[in-house]
Amino acid sequence: MSENFKVIDNYLMVRMPEEIDHHKSSYISENADKFIVREQISNVVFDFEDTKFMDSSGIGIILGRYKKIACFGGKVFAIHTDNRIRHLFMISGLHKIVEIMD
């Protein structure tokens, strides 16, 4: 499953699963943190290309990673977000800290 994590320069790319819920979220957070610490990553890019479902667990994953890297000047990006995911970002205020790229 670690093919879902890829390091390119100073960026950790995380390919998010089809369904992002509590059941899946700790796996993603723990693995992302391993890369962030081991490879001293400052930026994280979350790729939602495959994602069909997300609940507040996805917000927690992003917020938690943001807190880890923001103090070192790191940034969080989101790519391939659909309307629904952007709506969830909006309601939770996440759009203020995540850079949405498309």
């Binding site: 979220s25 700790s26 609940d55 507040s56 917000i59 927690g60 917020l63 969830l88 309601i91 939770s92």
Partner: peptide
């Protein structure tokens, strides 16, 4: 536990 407090708002 990486909870964000967005469950009820959602």
């Amino acid at each position: 536990l990486n909870r964000s407090g967005m469950g009820f708002p959602f």
